[in-house]
């Protein structure tokens, strides 16, 4: 599998480490009244999508960047690769922007 790195171009999947669902970036507010429930969901509940899936990949044997890869779990077709750094900063500037399209 080849991941088209936004800075470095196409790189072999062997250079990457897979973490999981990109929702891990959305850490709940620990001071919220429902924090316990939110953290339970954050920690344990995952969508098991048959289709488009946003996930975190770490370019460990490369430039050490975290990427958000949008991949179709049925075909392994990768439609989008973004720097997690950029997505997180965009979200900080505009909390309504989850990075998801549509």
């Amino acid at each position: 599998m080849i991941i088209n790195h936004p800075l470095l171009g196409p790189r072999d999947a062997a250079e990457f480490y897979y973490l999981g669902d990109a929702s891990l970036l959305d850490r709940p507010d620990w001071q919220a009244p429902d924090a316990a429930d939110k953290f339970y969901e954050y920690q344990y509940l995952r969508d098991n999508a048959a289709g488009e899936h946003r996930e975190l990949w770490y370019h460990e044997q490369g430039d050490r960047s975290w990427l958000i890869v949008t991949r179709d779990t049925l075909t392994h077709d990768i439609t989008k690769v973004e720097l997690a750094h950029d997505v997180a900063l965009a979200k900080q500037a505009d909390p309504a922007n989850t990075g998801r399209e549509g």
């Binding site: 171009g9 196409p10 790189r11 072999d12 062997a14 250079e15 044997q61 490369g62 430039d63």
Partner: peptide, 24 residues
């Protein structure tokens, strides 16, 4: 080396971190 090292995409002065035989 998993990278394409052809001069058209990896010209003089290009640098990259990668893996060869499981070594960084």
């Amino acid at each position: 080396c998993p990278l394409d090292l052809d001069a058209s995409v990896f010209p003089d002065g290009t640098v990259a971190r990668t893996v060869m035989e499981h070594m960084g």
